[in-house]
Amino acid sequence: MLKLKRNILKTGDYILILTVLCLIAFLFSRFYFSKSGARQVNITGNSFQGSFPGDENRVIDVEGPLGVTRVIIEDGEVWVEESPCREKICIKMGKIKRAGEQIVCVPNRVIVEIEGEREAVDGITR
């Protein structure tokens, strides 16, 4: 009693388990280890409108009512480096890289936005 036969697994089982493991590895690499940076960055100023590809590194100076806001695009990430405004909220927003994210500087009338449908959610509750 309480014995198991040997060699019960058949070839299909090994193939199935291997396939599923490969699928899991593929999905992990696809979802968690891929570099998904900004694709297209739209910058709107008081008298300025521009669209830039996210994969090219560049520095953009946007002229506003208070002065020059310096926006940097590097490695798919976008951030505001310098701003003449008082609160510096746009600098404190940090770096953005996902579609639909925004950096807004209200005093200097600058909006930096990554194009695309917003993918991230704020929170999930059950």
Binding site: I8, L9, T11, G12, D13, I17
Partner: peptide, 13 residues
């Protein structure tokens, strides 16, 4: 497909 899969494989499916 019982020829190719044992009960463990069917359980995984």
């Amino acid at each position: 497909l019982r020829k190719f899969f044992s009960i463990v494989g069917i359980s995984v499916i």
